[in-house]
Nucleic acid binder design. Sequence first.
DNA 1: ATTCCACCGGAATAGCGGGATA
DNA 2: TATCCCGCTATTCCGGTGGAAT
Length: 365
Amino acid sequence: MGVGFPELPGHGSGNPEIPHPILSRASLQGCCMITDARVLDPTFVPADVKHRDAEIDALTAALDPILRGEYADPVILHGPAGTGKTCIARYTADRLRDEVPDLDTPYVNCWEDHTRFKTLYRILEDTGQSLTIHRQSTPTDDLLDRLRDADARFVVVLDELDQHEDTGVLYDLYRVRGLSMVLIANRERELFARFDERVASRLRTATSIHFDRYGVTELVGILEDRARWGLAENAVATDQLERIADAAAGDARTALGILRSAARKAVERGHDRITDELVDAAEPAAKAEIQRKNIEKLNPDQQMLYDIIRDNENGIAPRDLYAAYADRVEDPKTERTLRNYLQKMCHYNLIAADGDGRSRTYRSL
DNA sequence: ATTCCACCGGAATAGCGGGATA
DNA sequence: TATCCCGCTATTCCGGTGGAAT
């Protein structure tokens, strides 16, 4: 399972301005405009995080008891997409690990590991204990016992917690001694509504840190850093970064996606710098790339559903959708299963459901 | 205003597949 | 090899919801 985070350049003692030795120009045929592709990746955690001092301070303060060998109450980071929640959680956890040598800081993306079993497995894996588990019968409770018995100290980051299907896992984790949690979600309110009352009441004592959208100047600052670390000098102009920041509407992930898309296109075409035309083309291109990746994750039945919905540009009623699907597929799934598929596709932002009850229609995005 | 019913989605259950166990 | 176990997906069952029809 290689979804973990690579060791990042500029991390710890390193200087972010020094290009990564392995990934630099040699690996890119012909063109050296992109000097380090990894700093353009949204999961990159810089050694020096900008514009989030207050949030970092608040999170550091909340986790302070860990420095004294105590246990910290949970911390909830919430706010819109691309506002730095994940980045700050990982950054702060790494700083903490510098201070506390025996601390483990496992990271779980609940979108990917959305069952109780997978979440616990990921935590154990991140702390280097999964190999011993693999040999034995491994019911979920065994994983939990293993975690409890591991006489270690953890700060677990649960990212995209609102995507978790079994909220009971939080109750499990609460009962592990020495385990502190950083919880990340888009909307705090809706998060609470999903939890068991026992967990919800304990979460009310949690520290809550809100992340606002970045302003245009903040976003430009972030982009400037990444361009300096990852692109050749003068590869992109400040006014181009401003336009990217503008298009991203406060979402750093989107902004970086646009910049990366423009840079790649420039390399493909053999340019040594990003042109205005490429910037214009990059916004839809970045969106299209995300969509393409999401569509690839669908199984054949889901793809068929998606195709039908996309072919009906004015939207399609559920009845017609089910009928069209059953018509075109060898061994159709039940309608209940289709509804689960449709829900998943809504989550991926591939389709949207308009209206409620009998007036509902589905359309592609 | 009331009834109707297409649709949604929660919960329980069945079946499958793969790894462990005897 | 046969059997058991468990997580995961799909299915079955069903109560709730809110436009549409009356």
